[in-house]
Nucleic acid binder design. Structure first.
Length: 490
RNA sequence: GCGACGGUCGUCCAGUUUGGUCUAGGACAUCAGAUUGCCAAUCUGGUAACCCGGGUUCAAAUCCCGGCUGUCGCACCA
């Protein structure tokens, strides 16, 4: 079994995630549910993101609508740029990109935005047939990766957002004003995005409905190297690969000096992101920031780095880091006829901010954490351990009476009742103690508190460490301190 | 979306070739009880599945058709 399959199995068996609508035969691919363990882990991941990025940098978090009006996507370019002309064979249903198919077969230059009627005429003129079955083509249709929704009785045209950041752009002016914004200003958002992928695959890695954690940093393009807080991260070591995939291991400061990174602002946020991921338990030796070539970049990006991680199924993109310049605010300003310029309080000049974004895929990040933390301990009956950081573990501590008689169960219930107010705690009284330890390890629970006969005499319990399997005895009254400490220093 | 190959308890697999003996079997997991009392022990008992919809047939897990879905390849991937 590959590691991907092992994680999939664990996810299904232990309630991390599973297919959506699975009791129905017509359930569509690309939709997945988080089960109880997955939700707990996701919430903790998000809390870490808030701690290490949002609060650390003083960003502002918003929570916007998933349905957005058509104009938003006219302005963003998603409607104009991202409807591909499609032709379908009427006989065998094979589907082709019309523009590419025609230019490939005839050598004619077919721009993507050529009107449908002209494309239809070209097909007639050259008498093009399906290359698979020689069948006739139907008329050109348009495939857009966005989900269209009809609002109200008249079904007014609107769309599910294909990226959460559009909300941030359209809300920028109000947030900046009402929150007394100063440049550079990070605005952050966690939420769902929707893309009608042609072929969603590999569970959490390619979804039609997925979570993003996006940070849009609004900055003054004339002051990209004017950033005092860069000092905090100048020695952070980054793995950066250039377009030839050579990886340079450099500090943030060196990266600027060597011209690998363009300015302090970009370097600062890449370093913050690096520090965030180093706290998730992902093996940072298997990560890189990959600079994208002009062909690979998104249409709105002028400089782009993908933060990638090596997994059992290859390098996986977790975060897209794009310098979007003024593309978005300019577009929204033009379409909405609103002036989105702001005064940079530092020098009282008027500026249309540029944007640098960190667009994170939460689902992919969670998968990667599971895979990098997955550990089979061959020295102990192949026990399966998820070595999750305590602050990401779905359950922090298990409470286990060694046996149920002699009042141990009642004692355990008391401790459980106390701990569960502050921590994700799991009480398990049935089965052998070894089996109960194993079950907790499988879902990454870092600690197990065991109540034994000594507990009844002196109010001490043993605390077992998941990774070392070592136990130490502490006072019940010290449990709270112990767990607090464990959450902090790991 | 195309092509190839698949879809059976929570998980993995047997059964499909040659329709009937399948009231669908096993392992692990899970639940209850007994026993033990610090690392997957043992015993007993239980829960639990033929992807969905049609068709052929006296009879379908098994054959046929359609759909959905999974893996892989191609294409796609703001």
């Amino acid at each position: 079994m590959t590691n991907y399959e092992l994680i999939m199995k664990l996810a299904l068996e232990r309630g991390f995630y599973f297919p959506s609508c699975e009791i129905y035969g017509d359930a569509q691919a690309g939709f997945w549910e988080y089960g109880p363990r997955g939700v707990s882990m996701k919430n903790k991941f998000i809390e870490l993101w808030r701690r290490e990025l949002v609060r650390r940098d003083g960003m502002l978090e918003i929570d916007g609508s998933q349905v957005m009006s058509k104009s938003v996507f006219v302005a963003s370019g998603h409607i104009g740029n991202f409807t591909d002309p499609i032709i379908k064979c009427t006989k065998c249903n094979s589907t082709f990109r019309a523009d590419r198919y025609i230019s490939e077969k005839t050598g004619e230059n077919v721009p993507e935005r050529m009107p449908d009627e002209e494309i239809d005429q070209l097909i007639k003129k050259h008498e093009l047939k399906c290359q698979n079955c020689k069948g006739d083509f139907g008329n050109v249709s348009r495939f857009n990766m966005m989900f269209r929704v009809g609002i109200g009785p008249a079904a007014e045209e609107a769309y599910l957002r294909p990226e959460t950041c559009q909300t941030i752009f359209v809300d920028f002016a109000r947030v900046f004003k009402t929150m007394r914004g100063k440049l550079p200003l990070g605005i952050a958002q966690i939420g769902k995005s929707f893309r009608n992928e042609i072929a969603p695959r590999q569970s959490l890695l390619r979804l039609r409905e997925f979570y993003q954690a996006e940070i849009e940093v609004f900055c003054n393009p004339n002051k990209l190297d004017d950033l005092p807080r860069f000092e905090e991260v100048k020695n952070t070591v980054l793995n950066i690969s250039d377009e030839s995939s050579t990886v340079n291991q450099v500090t943030a400061e060196e990266a600027i000096q060597k011209g690998i990174l363009p300015n302090k602002l970009v370097a600062y946020y890449l370093a913050l992101l690096n520090e965030f991921y180093s706290k998730t338990g992902i093996d940072m030796k298997r990560t890189r920031f990959r600079r994208l070539s002009d062909e690979d970049k998104a249409f709105y990006a002028s400089i782009a780095f993908d933060f990638e991680v090596e997994t059992s199924i290859g390098w996986l993109e977790l975060v897209a880091c794009n310098y979007r310049s003024d593309y978005d605010l300019k577009g929204h300003s033009a379409t909405s006829k609103q002036n989105l310029e702001v005064i940079d309080p530092s020098d009282q000049t008027k500026v249309l901010p540029h944007i640098f974004e960190l667009s994170m895929g939460i689902d992919r990040s969670l998968y990667t954490i599971l895979e990098h933390c997955y550990f089979q301990d061959f020295e102990h009956e192949n026990r399966l351990v998820l070595k999750l950081k305590p602050y990401l573990a779905p359950i922090l501590v298990g409470v286990l009476p060694l046996m149920t008689k002699d009042g141990l169960a009642a004692k355990a219930e008391g401790i459980y009742a106390d701990l569960k107010q502050d921590y994700d705690t799991f009480l398990d009284e049935s089965g052998s103690i070894g089996r109960r330890y194993r079950r907790l390890e499988e879902i990454g629970t870092p600690f197990a508190v065991t109540i034994d006969k000594t507990t009844m005499e002196d109010d001490t319990v043993t605390v077992r460490d998941r990774d070392s399997m070592q136990q130490k005895r502490i006072q019940i009254s010290q449990l709270n301190n112990f767990l607090q400490g464990a959450l902090k220093d790991s």
